[in-house]
């Protein structure tokens, strides 16, 4: 418990949310796999969505998040 507490403090101090931390760990595990499994696991890394923030009932600029070739540690 104490070791995990220290680790959690570490990434939280770096400004990461738990979700970022967990997904980064998952990416690392996927990156460590060997080939037949690696390709299969890689598709589970894809992120694709469009979003736009609204202000006073008007949509602002549209942002497309597209990580279809996988994050593999790129997720900051």
């Amino acid at each position: 418990m104490s070791s995990s507490a220290a680790a959690s403090a570490y990434w939280r101090v770096a400004g990461m949310t738990y979700l970022k931390y967990a997904n980064l760990c998952a990416d690392m595990v996927r990156a460590a796999l060997k080939e037949p499994l690696k390709g299969k696991a890689k598709v589970r890394e894809t992120i694709y969505f469009r979003q736009s923030l609204w202000k006073d009932g008007v949509p602002q600029k549209q942002v497309i998040t597209d990580i279809t070739e996988g994050t593999a540690g790129k997720l900051s």
């Binding site: 990416d27 589970r44 890394e45 694709y48 969505f49 994050t71």
Partner: peptide
């Protein structure tokens, strides 16, 4: 409306996507 999100199912729904 604070934000709108679309095309989430265009490629596929993944847990990293839901996390983002």
């Amino acid at each position: 409306i604070f934000a709108t999100i679309a095309d989430t199912t265009k490629v596929r729904v993944t847990f990293p996507e839901a996390s983002a």
